[in-house]
């Protein structure tokens, strides 16, 4: 188990020192939130209606922005090769990298996003639900991001392909995330089921994404 945590700890320390993680993603997040009213207009009522969906889409894009650096540095300096030679199965390596990405990027964004919703006049009633849904959903986002990063590591134009591969897979998280968020002001009975499905998606990703990611890394090493 200490092997698992050592990798998570190292990745988080690296994101903190190199400043490529939550800080950069947060900067991107805020920039998009400023651009939205500039493009759509400052009508507060309209923005309020738009806010939950806009926050979710911005979250997806911000997480996506940081994905191509999940495996690339380790691939470039030879660390990834050594990781395949360790006593820990590659599936757990992929899981540790995903968890580190979540703790370093996804989770901080999920926690800060509702607060930034103020910029879009987010209904105060929605703060709690959106926070809960984003914390849960961002886990799936990080796991899928890690899978995309594993598939495209070392490729030319890897960043472009990652978007094409991963964004379609983000569709369910987006739909149930927004549905859980909007439930409070819309149909309250939908909150429970939406959160349950969101949990199911995160749990399924927790099991399946690292397996697929490990297979992809093996294919790259071959």
């Amino acid at each position: 188990m200490s092997m698992f945590w050592s990798l998570i700890r190292r990745d988080i320390v690296l994101t903190l020192r190199q400043g490529g993680g939550a800080g950069m993603a947060l900067g991107f997040f805020i920039t998009v939130l400023v651009l939205l009213p500039l493009g759509i207009g400052p009508d507060l009522k309209f923005l309020q209606r738009l806010a939950p969906g806009a926050l979710w889409i911005t979250l997806l894009l911000s997480v996506l922005l940081s994905t191509d650096r999940i495996f690339a540095p380790d691939y470039e300096d030879g660390s990834l090769e050594l990781m395949t030679m360790g006593p820990m199965p590659l599936e757990l390596v992929a899981l540790a990298k995903s968890v580190a990405h979540w703790l370093g990027t996804g989770l901080p964004l999920a926690i800060l996003a509702p607060g930034l919703g103020v910029l879009l006049n987010l209904d105060a009633l929605l703060f709690g639900p959106i926070l809960l849904a984003m914390v849960l959903g961002s886990l799936a986002l990080s796991l899928l991001a890690c899978l995309g990063a594993a598939i495209t590591v070392g490729l030319r134009r890897g960043g472009m392909i990652i978007s094409l591969l991963i964004l379609p897979l983000y569709v369910p998280v987006l739909i149930f995330g927004v549905s859980a968020t909007n439930a409070i002001t819309g149909v309250p009975e939908l909150f429970g089921p939406s959160m349950l499905i969101l949990t199911a998606i995160s749990l399924a990703s927790l099991v399946l994404a690292p397996i697929a990611a490990a297979a992809a890394i093996r294919a790259h090493m071959a």
Binding site: M3, S6, R10, L14, Q18, D77, G78, S79, L82
Partner: peptide, 27 residues
């Protein structure tokens, strides 16, 4: 142990941290 052309070092970590990570990771 495999030592290829690359050193598998993280430049943002200290010398000690680099080694202690691999020691932990390799069990």
């Amino acid at each position: 142990h495999y030592l290829g052309h690359q050193n598998a070092l993280k430049l943002a970590l200290s010398v000690e941290e680099n080694l202690s990570f691999w020691a932990d990771f390799m069990g």
